[in-house]
């Protein structure tokens, strides 16, 4: 500590660095603490009843819908994302114009605000294709939204697979397709998984892109052409009438816990990569 007394710049810098770290940590603790302290007392078992009705604004249908939408989105986005990453990593010549354009478009997609996605989904799926507010409209909108992150993580994972694996496979007489499906993709599975998990996180927290595409019906839908609200949209709806603030706090806790769980899963997958 003594060395710092004669060096005002270094001392100031050190203090600032420590101060910002403390501020950051304090902000995190404060936000999570505030939500937990206000939300946990409001969590009741009845909030997880199967039926949503006006007397008991259960979040169970919304939780189920979140799972539905996440699954549907991933069914659409994962094959497309993984295959395009395969193309970029295994087939395309590095630095070709096509690859550049794909990169730029993927970057553009990841930068578009969710409200613009919501508007697009509304104009394209709800209005132009006449699917109305539905699970499908919402899932397609979200699929486009999470596509770039799945593409990027998969591509990184594929590029990290040592070429000796591929060469070994070719040497044993396997074709390119076989090598990709039996060697490259299995070897990069943890990377793909962590991308998928991140995508799930984004889907769970999304509101703006969904209220104009998937609608706000608080029931488990019969088909993909029915409207359904996810958990985040559920919270938005609870707030919009002002009758259920306590329940909104409880929903916030569930969302927070979900996000924490998803992050832990993603860390776990990433840890697996590091081990390879």
């Amino acid at each position: 500590m003594k060395n710092y007394i004669k060096k005002p710049f270094s001392l100031a810098a050190l203090l600032l660095i420590i101060l910002s770290a403390i501020v950051t940590a304090a902000v995190i603790v404060f936000i999570t603490g505030y939500i937990l302290i206000n939300g946990i007392p409001n969590i009741r078992l009845s909030l997880f009843a199967w039926e949503y009705n006006a007397k008991n604004v259960s979040m169970m249908p919304a939780i189920i819908n979140t799972v539905y939408i996440a699954l549907l989105t991933l069914v659409i986005a994962v094959p497309v994302g993984v295959f395009s990453a395969v193309y970029l990593a295994e087939y395309a010549k590095r630095g070709s114009n096509l690859v550049k354009i794909i990169r730029i478009t993927a970057d553009t997609l990841s930068g578009i605000p969710s409200i613009v996605y919501g508007l697009f989904g509304f104009l394209a799926f709800v209005v132009a294709l006449k699917w109305e507010y539905s699970l499908l409209s919402g899932a397609l909108t979200l699929a486009i939204m999470v596509l770039p992150s799945i593409m990027r993580t998969t591509e990184e994972a594929l590029l990290a697979v040592p070429d000796s694996y591929r060469e070994g496979s070719f040497g044993l007489g396997a074709g390119k397709i076989r090598t990709i499906f039996k060697i490259s993709i299995p070897a990069s599975m943890p990377g793909i998984l962590s991308g998928v998990i991140l995508a799930i996180g984004r889907i769970t927290g999304e509101t703006a892109a969904l209220i104009f595409t998937a609608g706000t019906v608080a029931a488990v839908p019969g088909s993909v052409f029915n409207s359904a609200r996810t958990l985040a949209v559920h919270m938005y709806c609870l707030l919009s009438e002002g009758l259920y603030t306590d329940e909104a706090y409880a929903t916030a806790v569930v969302l927070l816990v979900t996000v924490a769980a998803i992050n832990a899963l993603s860390d776990f997958a990433a840890h697996k990569i590091a081990k390879m």
Binding site: I18, A21, I22, A25, A26, V29, F30, G33, Y34, I37
Partner: peptide, 18 residues
Amino acid sequence: FISVLTVTVLMAVLFCSC
């Protein structure tokens, strides 16, 4: 020193938030 300081401040914040 840093760890102790951090923990103290965090606790303080948590109490304030209540």
